[in-house]
Amino acid sequence: MKFKNKIVHIILILFCLLFILPLLMIFSGSFENQSQLTENLEPVFKSVNSESKARWYVIPMYPTLKSYVEILFDSPEFFIMFWNSCKLVFPILLGQLIVNTPAAWGFARYDFKWKNTLFTLYIVLMLMPFQSTMVSNYIVLNYLKLLNTRSGIIFPAIFSTLSVFIMYRFFKGIPKTVIEAARMDGAGEFQIFVTIGIPMGAPGIASAMVLGFLEYWSMIEQPLAFLEDKTLWPLSLYTPDITPELTGVYLVSSVIILIPTLLIFLTGQKYLEKGIQASGLKE
């Protein structure tokens, strides 16, 4: 039995390494000397099969911070894109917080006519791929003169229904007795939402926010379709024309793109897991 357990752990460790290996290599590559990188990676920039093959050292041969210095001081466009991402992601999350939290509460705690129909509609919308909402988005953004503006990305994203669904699951779990007790004490409905709903549903709100951050930080479809002006493009669309001589800078940029999501992920993993579970609960 003990021996069997060890084998399970070894297999798991091997697979886990496989899953995080690309990440480790990006990190190690970002500290590699540029001339070494050029030599290692030049073969994958040739269009024909060459004699020399690409290499990637897990531990840098000549560790240096030169590429970091270069991107921090010599690439203003990279930072413009970084701020562009922030200017999209944070308004979206703030908007979702303001609009979708009460909506989830309304669906979870009150009975009203059409509620079930509406909620089913919300679920259908949450499951629709971007292809099926792309033209409708275009038509309304065109009508509201929001094409090619940040608001044109932000508003449709705020009203995406996935976060309503996730928070709904958590609000639903608050015991009825707590709320009825507050009602007996004479608390108003809005007061109950603020003083009981939000604190007790906080894990659900956090889950929706973590999932939302990961989603919107790497969104590609919407800005690609609706932002013609490249100076508005977020970091997720950063694809410089990589040449072998620029691989160092590119790898550093990869690390910088990655850091915010990795930090959110590592601090919010518990909520991420809860959010994923909530997205899978049947209705």
Partner: peptide, 9 residues
């Protein structure tokens, strides 16, 4: 948590 832009290379 890894944005696609990070893994292209």
């Amino acid at each position: 948590a890894v944005p696609v832009a990070s893994i292209v290379l």
